[in-house]
Design a protein around this nucleic acid. Structure first.
Lengths: 182, 182
DNA sequence: TCACACTATGCAACAAGTTGAATATTATAC
DNA sequence: GTATAATATTCAACTTGTTGCATAGTGTGA
């Protein structure tokens, strides 16, 4: 399972203690484009990681806002994470609603599909703009960045390519629907 | 949820009754690249779909092999599926192990990452070859195909683009690791 | 001051997905 | 004749992911 690994990775990646709330924000911001989840799952997972000795927690009292519990990765957690990195990855299969819809696209007027593809394309273009902006602001001088930053740039590049793939796919599908169908 | 929709779609798409076993094969063959699952989940989902009146089943006695239960989509099922198609799709977020690994790539020697990326690339290239072969055999004359076939071709194209995206990503990452890191 | 947004954590229930095994028949290869 | 692969279905247990709700304090704008 990779959520636990994502949590450990974020704890190391950010280089400081984070609360469940911090982690949730991280996972759902533009930065955390590589993993999506809910805060409930994160809290549940953190409790388990603590039970397994992968992280330790500490309550921090706050005056201006509710108290929080911040987490640190342990040596056990770090060893576990490094071991996981070296395991071979298997390709993630596609599970895309739009593909299922397309498979039975003949059941509805093609305009419906075109409209949906256009909507999907818009959403991906918005995301792409965000990533590109992020690239411009934080990664204009990658060559001179510390290693950590370079790895983060690699990830951002993937996010950009991922969006480009989806945009191209939507365009190809729309064009195909317009030209090949009457 | 889209597994139930995938099952209904496959039942319509194939235009004939299928058993749970047939469906499982379909979902895990090169054709069913748009959705992956296990036979257990399919059997469970079929039972539920039947309870909800989306499909009907019928036991077929066989002499040469174990008896089977074949499923048909009902009008209710078809209406439900068409309704679902018209609902707007939301982009599928990335959940890719390799991205998490890359995020903390600085924890291991870069050779480990390069090796993994190479392995991943090989797997995607194999899949791409399969899809391209499939394209050549079944879709050489798309313009003159029935509508159903055209939609299936659209899906195959997406599969091809998906593999190309992953291959390009792996290449970019390997190159980056080789050039930008010392 | 009232509503709303933000910070912060957690429970409960459910839906979806995975893993392992049991059962039974027939076909094929060694 | 023996092992194995393929056909065919199902149960049980578990993990992962989602949805809704509860609680509780602070900050901000209308």
């Amino acid at each position: 399972m990779a959520l636990s690994h994502s949590i450990l990775a974020t704890l190391i990646g950010r280089g400081k203690s984070l609360s469940g709330y911090d982690l949730a924000k991280e996972f759902n911001s533009s930065v955390g484009f590589y993993w999506k989840t809910t805060h409930q799952q994160i809290y549940r997972e953190l409790a388990r990681l603590e039970k397994e000795g992968m992280v330790t927690s500490e309550v921090v009292k706050q005056k201006d806002r509710p108290d929080k519990k911040i987490y640190n990765i342990t040596d056990t957690g770090k060893v576990h994470l490094i071991g996981w990195i070296a395991e071979p990855s298997i390709p993630t299969p596609i599970k895309e609603d739009m593909l299922v819809k397309m498979y039975v696209g003949f059941l509805v007027p093609k305009d419906i599909l075109i409209k949906e593809l256009q909507q999907l394309k818009d959403l991906h273009e918005e995301k792409l703009r965000l990533f590109r902006e992020y690239e411009k602001i934080y990664f204009s001088d990658v060559k001179n960045m510390p290693v950590k930053g370079k790895y983060r740039y690699l990830n951002l590049r993937t996010g950009i390519n991922f969006e480009l793939f989806h945009i191209r796919w939507c365009e190809e599908a729309i064009e195909f629907l317009n030209n090949e169908f009457e």
